[in-house]
């Protein structure tokens, strides 16, 4: 996975996104470049200073401190709340059936069969996630409250809408980690507005009542695993 898929935002100035290719990434704003050094070290090259070998964990922590994805945040018209949005080019697929994996005559498990529906634009806007096809004809849309689970698998963002319906968005340009973080942030805010706190995102979103919320009308919407 290319380095800028992890460091999707400049840990120095916060510019989003970083430009990159495989082992190198650079910030077009502050002109700092990042290169994989030995092992998990990243060599940070500021425009006006010597190279600094830095632990990847510390750079990631800097990005987290900045609040995750930098793009797609804007203030709503009444200036009371930040709304999240983002748009990226993806290949859209759906799990349609599964292959049975056998070993020594026994069913060992199942592997989902992804049926690709075409390329287009994935868009997150406020509380809606949608896919508009450019090639192919099948569109997709859902509200954040309908999403049951999120995870990334290689370059794809996987979203589950009910117990078993898996939609796969393979990101063609952007970082899957960035989109996972963005979507998780949007979902956290969605539930926070209802006085809920998300405790797990995979395999299912599990929420508990946020004890810090004082609203007496807030119901506990915890989803228990089977």
């Amino acid at each position: 996975m290319p380095i800028h898929h992890m460091l999707y935002r400049c840990p120095r100035c916060g510019h989003d996104p970083l430009d990159g290719h495989r082992r190198r990434a650079s910030c077009s704003s502050c002109e700092t470049s990042f290169e994989q050094g030995r092992g998990s070290t990243i060599i940070v090259r500021p425009p006006d200073g010597p190279p600094e070998p830095t632990a990847a964990s510390s750079l990631l922590a800097d990005v987290e401190k900045m609040g995750g994805p930098g793009f797609g945040k804007d203030l709503a018209k009444d200036l009371s709340e930040e709304i999240l949005f983002g748009e990226t080019r993806i290949a859209f697929g759906r799990a349609e059936g599964h292959d049975v994996i056998r070993w020594q005559g026994e069913v060992l498990g199942f592997s989902e069969r992804i049926s690709w529906k075409g390329e287009g634009l994935l868009r997150l806007e406020g509380e809606a996630l949608s896919f508009r096809p450019v090639t192919g004809s099948e569109a997709f849309s859902c509200l954040l409250g309908d999403i049951r689970g999120i995870q990334i698998s290689w370059r794809a963002l996987q979203v589950t809408l009910d117990e078993t319906r898996l939609s796969q968005f393979e990101l063609l340009e952007d970082s899957p980690k960035c989109w996972e973080d963005l979507l998780c942030l949007a979902i956290k805010r969605f539930y926070a507005r209802m006085g809920q706190r998300v405790t797990e995102f995979t395999p299912r979103i599990i929420t508990t009542r946020d004890r810090t919320t004082k609203d007496p009308n807030t119901r506990d919407r915890t989803r228990h695993d089977r």
């Binding site: 994996i101 056998r102 498990g109 698998s153």
Partner: peptide
């Protein structure tokens, strides 16, 4: 799908609770 079970890998569907 042929090799992985022969080297001890058991498939798990991570996007759901996989009873199998």
């Amino acid at each position: 799908a042929w090799l992985a079970p022969r080297v001890g890998a058991v498939p798990t569907r991570r996007y759901q609770i996989d009873p199998q």
